[in-house]
Simulated scan of single mutants.
Amino acid sequence: MGRSNETFNKKEKEKKRLKKQQDKKAKAENRKANSDKGKSLEDMMAYVDENGNLTTTFTEFMAPKPVDLDDIAVAIPKQVQRPKDAPNTGVINFYNTAKGFGFIRDSETKEDVFFHVNSLTYEAKENDKVTFTTERGPRGLQAVGVAKL
């Protein structure tokens, strides 16, 4: 009597292969049963209601609400210009003592303004509340005459 050429490992591989085939057939049958093919156009339509939500049923819109044209803002409102001599206030949000520069967050415009150590009138630290005036520098606005509040 001879030994069988099939080993345990070969049998297990064959079982896995057959199981995989059966799973694949089951998935294909499931897709066919749940497919959207053959649906009518009305079944595939989606509508938007007056609140902007998607629905499957068509609803008639009500008349549009009247809009007052004066309420529509087309441009950004102009900022109030301060006198050039008036000092600005702000907080030092970054200061590098080794390199000698920093930035002040302006309390009105919320913009960062560059300052150099030469424009300081005291020993500055981060989070100090300061007053300053601005000048146009080579790279934009620059704080001058920075003093502690």
Rank of each mutant, 00 (worst) to 15 (best):
A26W: 11
V130C: 08
K15I: 10
E126T: 15
A26S: 08
G145V: 04
D43Q: 15
P83R: 06
V113C: 02
E6W: 11
S107T: 10
D49C: 03
T121F: 10
K84H: 05
A26G: 03
T89Q: 12
E14A: 12
E60S: 14
V130P: 00
F8C: 10
M1W: 11
F103Y: 12
K39E: 15
K11W: 05
S4N: 13
L141F: 04
T59C: 09
V130E: 01
T7Y: 07
T56K: 15
D106Y: 01
R139I: 04
V113L: 02
D43M: 12
E135I: 08
R82V: 10
V91E: 13
E123F: 01
K37I: 01
R3V: 10
N30G: 02
D68L: 15
Q142W: 02
K11A: 00
I76L: 10
Q79C: 05
R3S: 15
D106N: 10
K78M: 07
G140N: 11
E14H: 14
G100C: 06
T121N: 12
R105E: 04
R17C: 03
A26N: 07
F8G: 08
T131Y: 02
K10L: 09
Y47V: 09
A73H: 10
E29A: 07
K16A: 14
V74T: 10
A28C: 04
A46Y: 12
T121M: 12
N34F: 12
